[in-house]
Design a protein around this nucleic acid. Sequence first.
RNA 1: GGGCGCUUAGUUCAGUGGUAGAACGUCUUGCUUACACCAAGAAGGUCGUAGGUUCGAUCCCUACAGCGCCCACCA
Length: 750
Amino acid sequence: MLEPQYDGNAVEGEIYRRWEASGFFNPDTCVAKGATKKNAKPFTIVLPPPNVTGTLHMGHAAMLVIEDIMVRYWRMKGRKALWLPGTDHAAIATQSKVESLIYKKEGKNRHDLGREEFLKRVREFAAESHDTIVNQMRRMGASVDWSREAYTLDEARGEAVATAFKRMYDMGLIYRGARIVNWDPKMQTTVSDDEIEWREEKVPLYYLQYGPFVIATARPETKFGDKYVVVHPKDKRYAKYKGGEKLSLEWINGPVIATVVKDAVMDMDFGTGAMTITPWHDATDFEIAERHGLDREQIIDERGKLLPVAGEFAGMKIRDARAAIVEKLRQKSLLVKVEEGYVHRIATSSRGGGRIEPQIKEQWFVAVNKKFTLEKSKIKGIRSGSETTLKKIMLAAVAGGQIEIIPKRFEKIYFHWIENLRDWCISRQIWFGHRIPVWYHRAFAKVSADNGNEMIAGDPPAGGAEMDWAQDPDTLDTWFSSGLWTFSTLGWPLDYARSKPKKGSDLATYHPTDVLETGYDILFFWVARMILMTGALLGDIPFRTVYLHGLVRDEKGKKMSKTDGNVIDPLDMIRKYNADATRLSLVMGAAPGSDIKLSEDKVRGYRNFTTKIWNVGRFVLMHYTPEFANQHAVFSVSDKKHLAGAVKAKREVARFIEKFQFHRAAERAYHYLWHTFADKIIEAKKEDLKDADAKKAAAAYHLLEAILMECLVMLHPFVPFVTEALYQNLPAGGKNFRREREFLMMNPWK
RNA sequence: GGGCGCUUAGUUCAGUGGUAGAACGUCUUGCUUACACCAAGAAGGUCGUAGGUUCGAUCCCUACAGCGCCCACCA
């Protein structure tokens, strides 16, 4: 006899072990064992690889649950279901985490340790995180195919990255150039536009006399070298100054020759409508300089200190220099007025936390607006062999309806983002990551991207004078390797001779993938870049549907964070309640794209539901007697109605799953089991079960058993453990034997 | 500055052009041999505000308010 209380923790580990050992998580094994048809349609999800920066949080748990629901459902539906797991090295995030750990413990920075030793430490940390994460995934019940597990920084992915880099370089899509980048003086690396977090700060706005102009600035400490004054071409106040006109005037460190520039970016209503520019340290200024072919000069060095151009202020940290500079301006009567409380937005690195100082640097870029020829295209609206751009590919894939984003409103956001997209800076000055596959020859002091003799991209130089070649010291943005994830995990490029993958290969079978399920917060970071990379390299889409889930917040709607102490740990919830309850709490009430509010009460509530499922099953099993085994069940009209009702509920659950309405699917199943099956049907049949008439009792029993089976099937994707545990207890033998398969997991969803 | 979303029972949220739904919570009653992590039942909402379309709107349209999010080159 089963215990009335279902103890998930006592059975989940063993159930998972048996599932895993059976090999059924691997679609090839399903086919080999005859559980899935050989020619079955595939269903593929590649897991968004969690960062190896520690442990899984509720957001990961939500992701695992939603994906597991889909994969379990489609597997039961007979599809060749592949859910491919992996982890992400998360370059900057991991490196910065390890750096701070080492600094706290040993007071050393990465340069003290050296590249090799430091990388060894990062790798150790990453390996440890990996093990933790993988165990957590098992605890959640994720039915991933471990035999295909990948890591964004392993050998196969390295091969993919190098190949991708080389190809895109040859296509003219990757170039090296001096461009303004977001420089993080703290981490000593560039940071992409999307990795920036903006903070508002109230600062004084200084009005400075610049010859006949008055200019407004929040950053007087960058103004030393300014020799261009910009106004709007239509600004009547400055109509008497012609573009290109030179003026001699007194400035911070003495007289300068200033040139008037007219550009329409100017906002005539802001300040005085005139400003000077510092192209080396400001993106807007850089663009103005580009447009008009102006000189640029570096004012601030990579550590955030002023360069000799600052005269007496050279060597000072910019932050400390401001007051002194303002004082000097005042003494020279160049300070017209100060407006307090001006709200200024400052950029910080979302990964490293440092304050961004834009710099012009030699970096590697992916050109998003450059025309190139796409040899083979399966993307709607872009013909094979036609000229296109990466931006157009990204737009076409979604605009043509080939990729559907759920919920739909994110498509607009996506388009808007693409329109504003600029060339993607892919090089990082950190050590942990894919080293840029470019070698420079010693004999050429100056590296030029235009001349193939001076550099090799993509392949290490062949033998011989190896000593003469030095590899680029930088590494690639982590999203470069993540962008390849849907196909680098499926055998590309080894499997990708010419333009067509080998028949029967993973790539041919499982790509494009069916669903990419992730949080809406990385729509741009990742989803857009996968579309870009897959378009450029395969001429195809990476996935057909993008399902975006919301952020998991605390019960008050606040973001969970360690500093606020409101973090709910998925493992805690599993230990305290069980895995199924934790899973349900992340699905129920969670509409696509909207944030999920989670509280421990909610988990407890669904733990109660798992107990209910257990007791429903227990009740049915309790009334089983061996005589029933061969008893033919005669169902009355109302019995048939009940059974049809269960089938109907199951069909509705299926429809909701297929429409990506997991919250509604779960609710439907929940409600059917509890309020129809348990409250109505079982209650009504209790009398019959006690009846002395064996036939009547058998019919009642078989009805309940039949409905229980339907319930277990429709609930399984949501609560796989408790349903599997019950299934394993169902009676075997006799013609009413309903346990058709070794596992409920492989039971067909008819 | 531009865009998007949300506003429905105490709470968290579903939902639909035709007299309002769930879960949790609350209250009442029951230790009826599946389950007290339970059962039976009850209370509780003019579906943000103001207009409009319609035979009829919580659902469609317009405006407004509050909250939240995203994007952006106001120095």
